[in-house]
Nucleic acid binder design. Sequence first.
DNA 1: CAGAAACGGGG
DNA 2: GTGTACGTTTCTG
Length: 621
Amino acid sequence: MEKNVVLFDIDYITKDEKAVIRLFCKDKDGNQERSIIAIDESFEPYIYVIPNDFKRAEEDIRELGFEKIEKVVKKDFQVETEFLKLIFNHPQDVPKHRDTISHLASVREIREHDIPFYRRYLINNDIFPMSKLKLSGEFIDKYEGLEKSSALIFKLDSSPKSVGEDYSNFRILSFDLEVRNPKGMPDSKKDEIIMIGVSTNTGINKVLSTKDEDLDFVNVLETEKEMIKTFINIIKEENIDILVGYNSDNFDFPYLRDRAKIYNLNLDIGMDGSSIKFLRRGGYQNSASFKGLIHIDLYLVMRRYMSLERYTLERVYLELFGEEKIDVSGDKIWQYWDNGGNDLKRLFEYSLDDVVATLKIAEVTLPLSLELTKIVGQPFFDITRMATGQQAEWYLVRKAYEIDEVIPNKPNGAEFNSRKGDKNTGGYVKEPDRGLHENLVQFDFRSLYPSIIISKNISPDVLLKKDHFTGHYIKNIVSKKLDGKEPNPEDFYVAPEHFNMFAKEPVGFIPSVLGNVLNERIRIKKQSKETNDELERKSLDVQQQALKRLANTMYGIYGFSRFRWYSMECAESITAWGREFIQNTMKQAEQFGFYAIYADTDGFYAKFRQSPEYKDSENKD
DNA sequence: CAGAAACGGGG
DNA sequence: GTGTACGTTTCTG
């Protein structure tokens, strides 16, 4: 049978030493919104091997005990290249054996060994989280590891297919804890939770608490334990899709976990019946996550959404809505609680205001993250925790797969460190002339850097570059076409300053992707102008914003030391051309009597003067 | 001055 | 877990 669902989350488990993909979905078509966990047992992990010697490499790899090896042709920087595709039994075999394999004398390089299994699944099956999916298979009664789950279980008999239909009615709950901490920051061993604020886009606005001040939004409970239980029940009963908090990765969820543990309470709200898990994502960031129930920490989202000096909930709220929200200083909360009366009333109001504000912020900002999820094609949870450069990279990984390009490796420690030492000059800046200036004209380039990337075809696969050590051209479509002959300068765009050369033909991978992103954005903007439906216009507007963000990320990314397509030549050529363009434009403007009084990167302000002599006399002041 | 440690948000 | 991995400011030796 076939079933249309919305995909929320994805992971894999191990069964009989094989990986099994689990898709956490919801049936959003019926009235019941049942959770469905789809099982796919057919997806296999693999890497690509570039041998020095095909026969030897195949023998060596077989000797290590791997049998599933096939010769395949893929493109590498647009050059058709033969690889050995090595299929493993289990995703963990990749990190376990990749060093042994890459160090074989018969092997030059391995590729695509650093792409997590669940990401690979999304990319190879061309499916997108938070959008509709068509499942084909059968419902089954039980499955290993899902004994505690109340979701329906669906076993796939073929790959899931993307359904080109939009979905955006997600059930969102925001929450916030207040704690009685008389000394310093809250200590979860001692300081009890005194309030849990809850607000949903399904109409709930309440504060759970053990005290009462005769306010209709306060839900009084006997104990802290009952409060936590009630909170968990609201999430279950309201069938919440997305949980949002503010700094909840670092405060609310760790705190809730600790307090729940004291009372032996299970936070079993995962779709598979599992509890909260804290994912270590880098040095400082722990993320609170549930299977199939998306937790978004808005603090992280806001840091990328807008540029502010601080990101407190109050500051972000003021910026977005132009109004102050109720604020109670953290170190006074316990006094308000102990005092009771009007102080306690104010604390209840603060608690409610916090979650109402958090939900409001979520409703304004999450559409953009959702749109990025649907474009980049990685889980919503991941997207909200990724740097913009990572978002762009996973988008490019997907695009590379679509055109049969093998993906460049992530840099290893040594490469990363050497890249970190590389420096690039930024945009041209003319310090402003002092004084109050009137009647200025403003000039800007429209998306200067993306335009340069496209018009000068700036991309590592079409860059003519000699290897530092061997003196040979690095392998890409350009050196392949040269075939040992000297390059003809006419066939290249030559960058100012460093004279990096980019072939005019063919179109480079990144200029091509970027061009498509910008064209798609123009198409959507046009569509938005044509529609009379206000809701559709809003949705189209968010789509074009997401594409704009993606396009704007792609210029700086060449100089980002963790980037798979890192290229200092590309990064420095973009800014060099940028400086040349703006300075040339300023010179041209001078010929018409407009003198720049200030310039920065992609634009300047200019003043009209009768003649250069007039300008000189003015400058003496 | 370089390298290590702390900070951000949260109460 | 096909392991992750911030950028900036302040402190310390």
